[in-house]
Design a protein around this nucleic acid. Structure first.
Lengths: 212, 212
DNA sequence: AACCCTATAGCGAATTCGGGTGATAAATCC
DNA sequence: GGATTTATCACCCGAATTCGCTATAGGGTT
């Protein structure tokens, strides 16, 4: 028996969900709310396994509510449903801790299936949403991936890492147990290989395309 | 009519897919290959809309193949299918440009549906996979979100940005059209606010939790 | 033997760091 | 309205650090 709470401002939809869950085998609706006033109390009282959360609601948005719920009840799965397809919504919902994200065009059976899946530890997503997630993922990660190869030697990499960590030549020398002049020489070589002319530039470049 | 090419080293599975696609309305199988030798030629010849790609294959992996295909034929959608559930696979497949990622446990109808969805611009994913994607997403993004506030003044931020870009005090002064001593004074204040004691450390910290 | 990586060394010039001091205008507080 | 704080800008000094260059040398690889 999966316990489900509903947050949905549209009265008709809310009652439809309530009816759907009430009549489906394996589901119980433990609460249906039109907004997030007294959110945490409502959650506590209905103690759901899964929350079906609308994004667009008067007052607190579903995303904020998701964040709050996950903060206080990390084990509750939250299934976001919305009519909107905006990257910002998707991004923020994920970061807030949503477990799934479906569009409202889903069929009644689709809702039940999605709820089952979040409960089972999955993250049902409308394929269109999933595409956006992948795009967001790539946009923000790929640039860091094509780690250019500046063919630094292992020692040079160590030096660079220590430099990035904010160490001075002296400290790096101590750390690697070599003379400071050696470090100096390594850093010169690093600058040449990275085509930079200062420590700050080297650090900047190092973080952007190399070892973080 | 969706043109589909198959890469799958298991003979039985490959022929099953071929049969499935050959007998399903709206699909044509334009090629079925046991490995990625002559990958690009094969793709060119069969000119598919969607590629069903196995990850584990002798020789080139499905992920490498995905990268290559997307490089040369960006419009082809690639649907990854695998028995494995590894984060590394998922991550790399996405970065290589895969449009969807499904487990091999999917039903025959599931395959057809997934192919339809990638062709329609979606990204079908097994809910379990989707969950991993969201986790990867959060792990790598959330830490960058809570941008700490060091209460730098606007001028100090500019200075810091220029410093991160690799400028020297002199260049920053020229850029902002003030005396170099002013920059020095600003940088001193920045160091104090960031609790660092060198340019490299400041740059490192600035990139990690502030303006990129 | 030629080559690369690592380590060491020295020197002069340039730059950065860490103090302190103080002026000015604008915003904020009382 | 007057006082205080804040942000910006400027200057000076001395010490420390970094930069750029050149040169040497042992160990390992090819």
């Amino acid at each position: 028996m999966i316990r489900v709470a509903i947050f949905e401002d549209n009265k008709h939809l809310r009652e439809t969900f309530q009816f759907l869950l009430g009549n489906a085998a394996g589901f119980t609706c433990t609460g249906a709310y039109p907004d997030c006033s007294e959110l945490l109390q409502s959650i506590k009282r209905s103690s759901p396994d899964v929350v079906l959360m609308d994004i667009e609601m008067p007052g607190m948005s579903g995303i904020e509510a998701t964040r709050l719920i996950k903060q206080h009840f990390p084990n509750i799965h939250i299934l976001i449903q919305t009519v909107f397809f905006e990257d910002d919504y998707i991004f923020n919902a994920i970061c807030a801790g949503a477990s799934g994200y479906i569009l409202k065009s889903t069929t009644p059976e689709g809702y039940l299936e999605s709820i089952r899946e979040v409960q089972a530890g999955g993250s049902p997503m409308t394929p269109g949403i999933a595409r956006r997630v992948l795009e967001l993922f790539k946009q923000n990660f790929i640039p860091t991936l094509p780690t250019k190869d500046y063919s630094l030697t292992t020692q040079e990499k160590k030096v660079l890492q220590l430099l990035v960590a904010g160490n001075s030549y002296k400290m790096i020398a101590a750390e690697l147990m070599v003379a400071m002049d050696t470090i100096k020489s390594h850093i010169s070589n690093i600058y040449a290989k990275l085509h930079v002319h200062s420590g700050t530039e080297a650090v900047s470049l190092a973080i952007r395309d190399k070892i973080v």
